[in-house]
């Protein structure tokens, strides 16, 4: 009896943990999308491409400049974030007075271009990126499962960054500007705040979060041009379920849906690829603003 239960756990635990690791990426990516949508009213379809860029920049830093993982974890988000700032200033800023749809089309086009450029330059087979050996110290090796230390780190790092982002937005002066400008940008600007610059930096920060997730992902998934596109559709579903623009919603829903996906893989594997979208449909029918959405 007990042996049976152990066997079941042995089967289930890795899937659930894998779900949690995926959830860590969903949370980080949907957090960036939520911040960008809240402040700029732009649905950033280039988010997956920017995630992929984070992974590639980490790879380039290591392969071309010999800068290891820890350096990449700081530098890649800065570099890709700066790229985001340029994109916002030169292109997205021109679309604020138009319908949402234009921002979506522009960023979708950008995603295709960025992915195309990387496919052209690096092929689509993927490049290896080894995690630092130091993470082996975090390995979890218990009777029911073995979990590589690097994955433990991904969950911790994602959680900490989400928490820090939430604290900045909810508890600081900068966060108060951000929340106020999300509600009424025009009035915040009339108080003397340079709102256009805030929008640029917000976009840069959201893109940097995507790139940070990309660096985290580099040692787990092979670094390849399609890695963002694979994630981003699910991430959009997470954002819709959590509530467009809700910070807490995107974090909780990100981790939660990763877990649910993992559980589905144990209980009914056929549903694991669709469970998120079924939940999305149910949420849209019952709470159109999302689980944590306002109004």
């Amino acid at each position: 009896m007990i042996e049976n239960l152990l066997f079941e756990l042995e089967m289930a635990a890795p899937q659930v943990i894998l779900g949690l690791v995926n959830g860590a990426f969903y949370a980080l990516l949907s957090l960036g999308l939520a911040i960008i949508f809240g402040m700029l009213n732009v649905i950033n379809f280039a988010h997956g491409a920017q995630f992929m860029m984070g992974a590639f920049v980490a790879w380039m830093l290591l392969a071309w400049a010999g800068i290891p993982y820890w350096g990449a974890l700081v530098l890649a988000p800065l570099i890709v974030g700066a790229f985001g700032v340029v994109i916002e200033r030169t292109m997205i800023a021109r679309l604020y007075k138009l319908d949402h749809l234009y921002g979506l089309l522009l960023t979708f086009g950008l995603a295709l271009i960025i992915e195309g450029v990387f496919r052209n330059g690096f092929g689509s087979s993927g490049l290896p990126y080894a995690p630092p050996a130091a993470f082996n110290a975090l390995n979890i090796d218990i009777p029911i499962m073995f979990l590589p230390g690097y994955r433990v780190w991904v969950v911790i790092a994602s959680f900490l960054v989400c928490l820090a982002t939430w604290l900045v937005i909810e508890k600081t002066k900068i966060g108060a500007y951000l929340r106020a400008a999300t509600e009424r940008p025009e009035l915040v600007q009339a108080f003397g705040v340079n709102v256009p610059r805030m929008m640029t930096l917000t976009y840069g920060a959201g893109v940097a979060l995507a790139a940070f997730a990309g660096v985290l992902a580099a040692p787990i998934y092979s670094v390849n041009p399609a890695m963002g596109a694979n994630f981003i559709i699910t991430v959009f579903a997470v954002v819709v379920i959590g509530g467009m623009g809700s910070i807490m919603g995107s974090v909780v829903t990100g981790f939660g849906l990763g877990l649910i996906e993992g559980l589905a893989r144990v209980v009914y594997p056929e549903a694991s690829a669709t469970v998120v979208f079924v939940i999305m449909a149910i949420v849209l029918l019952t709470r159109p603003a999302g689980l944590f959405g306002r109004g």
Binding site: A176, Y177, T182, L187, F191, V193
Partner: peptide, 28 residues
């Protein structure tokens, strides 16, 4: 605004996602 003019709009413009102190401290 930075030349020294401050504006209080007709609909008051109190922010729902900010508490009273945050609203009070918002304008730089």
């Amino acid at each position: 605004a930075r030349t020294g003019i401050a504006y209080c709009p007709e609909e008051r413009g109190i922010f729902a996602s900010l508490d009273v102190t945050e609203n009070l401290m918002l304008p730089p």
